[in-house]
Design a protein around this nucleic acid. Structure first.
Length: 557
RNA sequence: GCCCCCGUAGCUCAAUUGGACAGAGCGUCGGCCUUCUAAGCCGAAUGUUGCAGGUUCGAGCCCUGCCGGGGGCACCA
């Protein structure tokens, strides 16, 4: 089993120390609270710290510093902690043992690919991440791309955190949008054949519709003129879905499940959901429509779930879908929505609760928009006029790695300004290159090492206590944080932390690389081997972090 | 009118979920290539965290009220 994260062990150690101090009469009797151990911002405060003594001042009726001292006096330290101090106004600081830190390379390199794993999911919890979920009516847009990258990054992180994760796309293949799609393609088909047909305002305007029509003509000539719009809709839906799937795969997003809305009709789940809600007293009829009593859950007005014409609104299948998620037994469901769905997300959760489930297992993640910037100016986009940059075009222009990085380079709550010039710039100004170059530099050392005909595993028994350079130790400290970062992301669903971590890691790597030579002739042999071990470690850490972000770890650029 | 997000250095954004002196990048200014290493490094300057109250040992973070920006408020999805 993987070891616990240090801050958890220290938390337990502090609780035990409080208990011991109480037994010894050094501290009075009180209930021992949860002890939060965190990494202080200020490195002079050590590697871990807790403010628990400050919180205990009131229940213990003692000066915080005295409490901190009592705790320090009774604590049993794990081997990786070198020293513990109580400092004013009452913080307890822990500092990593230098020898232990120097041994970190062996710990990181030992189980290949396991570094950064944590145990939140305990190997059995089931999680689902739902994202993109675009209608199959057009190319993937940048907003959906952002949701997709956020979702896939979470998928990777949750998996590393011990969850069994399903990445899922809710595929909206029923209803009006699809009908419109069919009509749009048919109009273009007729127009391309020179027959009169008018593309109405509400139809899809993009050129890709014309392309689909041309393909139909190439394959069928004018044989489809009399066919119903359903034929065109079905064709377009399949083609576009496939295209979306291929495009997403270009940036490393591969879904485990495509959940079709239509299947909720085929299995009767939609109507079953309505009846279940009705049975539970949440449905009433008004003006010929069926209303869901969302006001019972704090909504400002009730919502129509079946229109007067007998057709369900999108809410009913959405609720049916989430009922299905609840029944599938996920411990955690992450729903990722763009800014255009901010208002509807709560209504689905109301549906889940109305069906008798807690909605606590659902984490709704709302993200802001993506703006494209070129030459310092915002690129104007309009979906309605078909004037938008698609994911495919963006991959062609800047590549998958830059897209993956920049989409998570901001908190979901902040808009992303995607700078097309920066994304392809090959310099330290471009964080994508800056980070990947750290991996390239490591790989370069080993390439040169091999070219000199030296044995690949020469550093295996290196004396790691020779890693005394402050740059090396600072990097190792940061590398150790990966587990904490993973845990934080898995609990908060905030993958931007990974992007920031990767950058910070690179910012600590490059100075070390600058100052700590390996192959240079004046480096003594034992130190050379220790540093070789260090760079082997750094390479592994960057490879791991880049993998978690779905980015490539190049050996040359 | 109601709901959501945001307001932090000149600009774009972080801030370990309430902790210690609020940090990065860009931009600006000044240094560093006979060195696996300039696709890089070192250094400098920059803040009333929109405003006003409140909660407490402690608030950028929580509560209330304002101000400003963005998005959303269908029997569309």
């Amino acid at each position: 089993m993987r070891p616990m994260l240090h801050h958890h062990e220290l938390s337990a150690a502090v609780r035990a120390a409080i208990s011991a101090a109480q037994a010894a009469g050094t501290l009075p009797s009180f209930d021992i609270p949860d002890v939060l151990v965190e990494r202080p911002r200020e490195t002079t405060h050590g590697d871990y710290a807790t403010a628990v003594a400050l919180q205990l001042a009131r229940p213990a009726r003692m000066a915080p510093l005295k409490i901190a001292e009592a705790i320090v006096g009774h604590i049993a330290l794990p081997d990786y902690i070198g020293e513990t101090t109580a400092v004013a106004p009452g913080f307890i600081n822990f500092r990593l043992s230098k020898v232990w830190l120097q041994s970190l390379p062996d710990r990181i390199l030992a189980p290949a690919g396991d570094f950064g794993r944590v145990d939140l999911g305990q190997g059995h919890k089931k999680a689902q991440v739902e994202c993109v979920s675009a209608n199959p009516t057009g190319p993937i847009t940048l907003g959906r791309t952002r949701g997709g990258v956020i979702g896939d990054t979470l998928h990777r992180v949750l998996e590393a955190a011990g969850y069994d994760v399903t990445l899922e796309y809710y595929y909206n293949d029923a209803g009006r949008q699809i009908t419109l799609l069919g009509e749009s393609v048919k109009v273009r088909y007729l127009q391309e054949l020179g027959q009169p047909a008018e593309l109405l305002d509400e139809y899809y305007q993009g050129d890709y519709i014309i392309d689909l029509a041309k393909d139909l003509i190439a394959a069928n000539g004018d044989a489809l003129v009399e066919m119903p719009t359903d034929t065109f809709a079905e064709y377009a839906r399949e083609r576009i879905s496939l295209q979306q799937k291929e495009t997403l795969a270009r940036i490393g997003i591969v879904f485990d499940v495509y959940f079709r809305e239509q299947s909720l009709y085929e299995t009767g789940a939609v109507w079953k959901t309505l009846e279940e809600l009705r049975k539970r007293g949440y449905i009433y009829e008004k003006d010929g429509a069926q209303w869901f009593r969302t006001t019972g859950f704090g909504d400002d007005k009730d919502r129509v779930v079946v229109k007067a014409d007998g057709e369900p609104t999108y809410r009913l299948p959405d609720i049916a879908y989430h009922w299905d998620k609840a029944q599938r037994g996920f411990d955690l469901v992450v729903d990722i929505f763009g800014p255009d769905h901010h208002a509807t997300a709560p209504q689905v959760l109301m549906g889940v609760r109305a069906l008798g489930y807690s909605s606590d297992f659902v984490h709704t993640l709302l993200h802001q928009i993506v703006n494209l910037v070129r030459g310092g100016n915002q690129v104007k986009m309009s979906t309605r006029r078909g004037l938008f940059v698609t994911l495919d075009e963006l991959v062609d222009e800047v590549g998958a790695d830059a897209i993956r990085y920049f989409m998570i380079s901001r908190s979901a709550n902040s808009p992303v300004d995607f700078d097309l010039d920066l994304a392809v710039e090959q310099s330290d100004k471009n964080p994508v290159y800056y980070i990947q170059n750290a991996h390239v530099r490591c790989a370069g050392i080993f390439r040169k090492w091999a070219e000199a005909g030296l044995p690949e595993d020469a550093d295996e028994d290196a004396d790691l206590r020779l890693l005394t350079h402050e740059r090396e130790l600072a990097f190792l400290r940061k590398a150790l944080e990966l587990g904490d970062v993973m845990e934080m992301i898995a609990t908060t669903c905030e993958p931007h932390r990974l992007a920031f971590y990767a950058y910070d890691l690179a910012a600590l790597f490059h100075p070390a690389y600058e100052e700590c030579r390996v192959l240079h002739s004046d480096v003594p042999e034992p130190l050379r081997l220790a540093r070789l071990r260090f760079y082997r470690t750094a390479r592994a850490v960057f490879a791991r972090v880049l993998e978690l972000m779905g980015m490539s770890a190049p050996d040359v650029m």
